[in-house]
């Protein structure tokens, strides 16, 4: 398992840019926001938590189609399916690798981009905490979407269409934590809900992803 994780991480870092690209996209989206809504710092401060969450979600989404596609094309997915490791573990590792290469950098970059958006000082802590709790769920749900569309030629758009509605609860609670935190309100309930969703999704979703992958490998 650890070997597989290391292999995926090494491939992501090495193979032409999958690694930095999500982060660069996050930066670009955030920079585009003031251009589209205007530079007033009060407005930006108010929408900053939501923008950061939306940017993180989009960069997560865009990196999903590479998650399984490469292994599908060169046949290593078939090898992994016949390996002694259960497929549920394989997809969990894949999701973990995706989170380490995409989600974690997003969490770390969010405060820097928060400065650009004039995020209130109290907000930084909660934006980071909410992203840290929420992005694993995004990776795991995304793995399910990637497994659904892995055999398709032009799966990219379909993947977004399928995964977006599944992201709704995570996004609502995650952005709510960040928003309330930035406004200095109590955040216990949404934090607990967000953590609950992440935990449940991490525990249950690999079974669905593995089932879907088995069907696609048939």
């Amino acid at each position: 398992m650890i070997a597989l994780l290391l292999r995926d991480l090494r491939l992501a870092v090495r193979a032409g840019g999958g690694f930095g690209l999500g982060l660069a996209f996050f930066l670009i989206v955030t920079v585009m926001v003031p251009f589209s809504v205007g530079p007033e710092s009060e407005l930006l401060a108010r929408i900053a938590p939501g923008v950061l969450w939306l940017g993180a979600l989009l960069s997560c989404l865009l990196s999903l189609d590479r998650l399984l596609a490469l292994d599908w094309e060169d046949g290593s997915l078939d090898l992994l399916a016949t390996a002694p490791l259960p497929l549920e573990a394989v997809v969990s590792i894949k999701a973990l690798a995706h989170w380490i290469t995409t989600g974690l950098p997003l969490v770390l970059a969010a405060p820097v981009l928060g400065i650009l958006l004039n995020l209130p000082l109290e907000g930084f802590r909660w934006v980071v905490i909410s992203l840290f709790l929420g992005t694993p769920a995004l990776s795991v749900i995304g793995t399910f979407g990637a497994a659904l569309t892995v055999g398709l030629k032009r799966g990219g758009l379909l993947l977004s269409l399928l995964v977006m509605p599944l992201y709704v609860p995570t996004l609502i609670f995650g952005a709510e934590v960040a928003r309330r935190g930035a406004m200095g309100m109590g955040v216990e309930t949404p934090v607990l809900m967000l953590a609950g969703i992440s935990a449940a999704v991490i525990a249950l979703m690999p079974f669905a992803s593995a089932a879907v992958l088995r069907i696609n490998l048939r």
Partner: peptide
């Protein structure tokens, strides 16, 4: 057959998330 299998699982997973969204939206 693949389409039937995949959409069936999407329907199951989707149901869970649709219900979850209902509560999330209520809260929101």
């Amino acid at each position: 057959d693949t389409a039937a299998d995949l959409t069936a699982i999407l329907c199951l997973v989707g149901t869970v998330f649709a219900v979850l969204s209902r509560y999330a939206v209520n809260f929101w």
